[in-house]
């Protein structure tokens, strides 16, 4: 069973991932990461590891393995 890893420190908060996620599994943190961005968070209950977030992400925040 694969699972999604979120490298929150790389996230720049562009929200492209939320726009493509069909499962509504992505939300954004209230706190900022070290770079100052509200970062993506994945709800493991909703995530189906489809990889769309990886595909659209400019910053390699997501890994599905």
């Amino acid at each position: 069973m694969s699972e999604v890893t979120v490298y929150a420190e790389k996230c720049k908060g562009c929200r492209y991932c939320a726009g493509v996620c069909n499962q509504d599994a992505i939300s954004f943190s209230e706190k900022s990461n070290a770079a100052g961005y509200q970062f993506a968070q994945v709800d493991p209950e909703k995530c189906i590891q489809c990889g769309l977030c990886y595909t659209v992400c400019p910053d390699c925040v997501f890994e599905i393995a």
Binding site: M1, S2, I48, Q49, C50, G51, Y54, T55, C60, F62, E63, I64, A65
Partner: peptide
Amino acid sequence: MAVTRVKP
């Protein structure tokens, strides 16, 4: 369907 996606 679950896939594998890892940074190159």
